[in-house]
Design a protein around this nucleic acid. Structure first.
Length: 212
DNA sequence: GCTTAGTATGCCACAACAGC
DNA sequence: GCTGTTGTGGCATACTAAGC
């Protein structure tokens, strides 16, 4: 399985597959990129039909399936079951992230553009808008997917809300003083009366303001 | 629990195109 | 003209979710 480098160092099966990925044509790369990006966005399997609709080039679902089949053989994607779409494998995600990291150093010009853009944005916009714009800017400069994370340690709470989804699940909505909103789904103890959530909401809102 | 609709894949046949 | 490659469409099948 493992081949040998010129230096005699062994190449793992993973590295070997990664090398074969380089041989993929632009279309296969584009499809792989869409699968990973869609997965990162929704967490759901990506189907050939949906993919064919959203691809920049015109390809039928069957053609997309053929490419998907190649990507599956390379171990980059897999199907959770026969009638589901495809998900990126650990190897696929690894290669995708490596691809992002290997875009290269940011040039002085690019750095200046980013800083200038963020400075302008920060004076007039909400954090969510700034993050979206920063992601767009990075994506534009790198020609890859852009991923931007905000520092959550500094988030100071302004308001909290519990929304019961099911008897044992609730959605927690956290609003920060900066205006950012975060959602979390939590498990509830069985038999918890709905009034308890209202009580918890009122209690927390009177005690958490300004806390991290 | 059963039925139905929607969506997905695999397989096959066919068409278009390029290379010989 | 023949052959191989690539792309497309159609059909059968599988699975999930929703409705009854």
């Amino acid at each position: 399985m493992a081949s040998l480098r010129a230096s005699g160092e062994r190449v793992t099966a993973t590295e070997e597959k990664a090398g074969r990925v380089v041989d993929l044509n632009d279309r296969s790369r584009e499809i792989f990129r869409h699968i990973v990006e869609s997965y990162l966005e929704t967490g759901e399997p990506v189907g050939s039909r949906n993919l064919s609709r959203h691809l920049p080039m015109t390809l039928s679902p069957a053609s997309v399936r053929n490419v998907m089949s190649d990507l599956e053989q390379l171990g980059l994607i897999y199907a959770p079951h026969t009638s589901a779409g495809r998900l990126p494998t650990h190897l696929g995600l690894r290669l995708f992230v490596d691809g992002i990291l290997e875009v290269g150093d940011v040039s002085e010009e690019e750095r200046r553009r980013i800083e200038q853009h963020v400075m302008v944005s920060s004076t007039s916009k909400k954090v969510d808008d700034m993050l979206a714009e920063a992601s767009e800017l990075i994506s534009g400069l790198s020609l890859c997917a852009g991923l931007v994370l905000a520092d959550k340690h500094a988030m100071r709470l302004k308001h909290i809300e519990f929304v019961q989804l099911e008897p044992t699940r609730a959605l927690v909505v956290l609003v920060s003083e900066e205006g950012t909103v975060e959602n979390r789904v939590i498990k509830l103890p069985e038999g918890l009366p709905p009034a308890s959530l209202v009580e918890a909401t009122n209690y927390l809102n009177s005690h958490i303001q300004g806390l991290t």
